[in-house]
C-alpha cells in the first residue's frame, strides 16, 4: 500500500475523518461480512420495492421466487476466467452462490411481481393485493 503525504496536505478538514471512516468500513467488512446481496426495501400503501446490489451478475443467473410474504433471491456470482499463466494482483470481489429470503410487509401475489436489472442493481416491484390494502372507511353523515 502506498500512502503519499500529498493527501494530508490538501486543505480539507474532513479528509482525515473520511479516511478513518473508510478504514473502519474496511475493518467491519472483514470482521462481519454482510449478507449478499445487500437489499433495501421501500414501501407505500400499494406496493413494496426491493432493490439489491448484484454487480457482475448475469440476469439469467438470478432466480426470484415469491411465496406468501417471503421473497427469495438465489443465484451465483461467477468468477471471471483468467487466461492461462495470468496472475491475480488484487482480489477484493466475492464470488459464489448466494441465497437470501426477505420478509415482505404483506402476502404477495406472485403474478404481480416485476423485476428489472440495470447497471448491477436488481429492482423488484411487488404489488399489494387489493384485499390486503388498508381501506379508508368513510364516516356517514347521520
Amino acid at each position: 500500500m502506498l500512502h503519499p503525504a500529498s493527501g494530508l496536505m490538501t486543505i480539507d478538514p474532513f479528509a482525515l475523518m473520511r479516511r478513518v471512516a473508510r478504514d473502519m468500513d474496511d475493518v467491519m467488512r472483514r470482521v462481519a461480512p454482510a449478507a449478499f446481496p445487500p437489499v433495501n426495501v421501500w414501501q407505500n400503501a400499494d406496493a413494496a420495492v426491493v432493490t439489491a446490489e448484484l454487480p457482475g451478475v448475469e440476469p439469467g443467473d438470478i432466480e426470484i421466487t415469491v411465496k406468501d410474504n417471503v421473497l427469495t433471491l438465489r443465484g451465483e456470482r461467477k468468477a471471471p476466467e483468467a487466461a492461462e499463466g495470468a496472475v491475480w494482483r488484487l482480489r477484493e470481489r466475492g464470488f459464489g452462490q448466494f441465497a437470501r429470503a426477505i420478509r415482505l410487509p404483506f402476502r404477495a401475489d406472485p403474478d404481480k411481481v416485476e423485476a428489472r436489472f440495470k447497471d448491477g442493481v436488481l429492482r423488484i416491484a411487488i404489488q399489494r393485493p387489493e384485499a390486503d390494502k388498508p381501506r379508508r372507511i368513510e364516516i356517514k353523515a347521520s
Binding site: P38, V39, V41, Q43, N44, V49, P105
Partner: peptide, 12 residues
Amino acid sequence: QPENFALAWSEY
C-alpha cells in the same frame, strides 16, 4: 429511490 415510497429497511 422509487417515487412516493418510504425506505422501510436499508442494508446499503
